[in-house]
């Protein structure tokens, strides 16, 4: 079986598994990293949202064989380390605003929020309501209103 190597939450990992297995299952079923959740498997619910090289991606829709050795995959578990703190400011904002209900979508929501803020910064502009409108992550508990508040608060505290 082929060896798959990439960097996961700051550390290189190697797994023996076929190329075509999607990254979500490598993370969850083989590596026991369960922060990214399954909600659809076809890149629509966004519950599995994680980062690759600092940008948001959905591991349910990427073959592990398409990851390169140097690719840095970050899941919710590794997010705090990216800022060298116990909690990323976005996670803190989520706690301050008491966002989670069942919590199932929230790791994905937070990873999407961080990427959205970074994206608008790259574009050299402020976060707009329309950016929040386009966050695709589903929350079946309907925490959308608090998510909007928390993204804005988290953005203010992100360097």
């Amino acid at each position: 079986m082929p060896k798959q190597t990439f960097i996961l939450n700051g550390k290189p990992v190697t797994v023996n598994v076929n190329d075509d297995v999607r990254v979500l299952w490598v993370l969850r079923d083989l590596l026991g990293v369960t922060g990214p959740k399954y909600g659809c498997g076809i890149n629509v619910c966004k519950a599995c949202t994680s980062h690759i090289n600092g940008k948001a991606f959905n591991p349910c829709s990427v073959k592990v064989g398409d990851l390169k050795k140097k690719d840095r995959v970050t899941t919710i578990e590794g997010l705090p380390d990216t800022v060298g703190k116990k909690l990323h400011p976005m996670q803190q904002a989520w706690i301050d605003r008491d966002v989670p209900q069942c919590g199932y979508c929230q790791p994905g929501q937070i990873m999407a929020a961080v990427a959205t803020v970074k994206k608008v910064r790259r574009e050299g502009r402020q976060l707009r309501e329309s950016d929040l409108d386009e966050i695709r992550n589903i929350c079946r508990c309907g925490t959308y209103a608090r998510i909007r508040e928390a993204v804005e608060e988290g953005a203010r505290n992100m360097r």
Partner: peptide, 18 residues
């Protein structure tokens, strides 16, 4: 605030499949 918020936002809250 909820007692499980920290676990939820850090991915530590375990659901059945976890």
């Amino acid at each position: 605030n909820r007692d499980d918020a920290l676990a939820a936002v850090t991915g530590q809250k375990d659901f059945s499949m976890d």
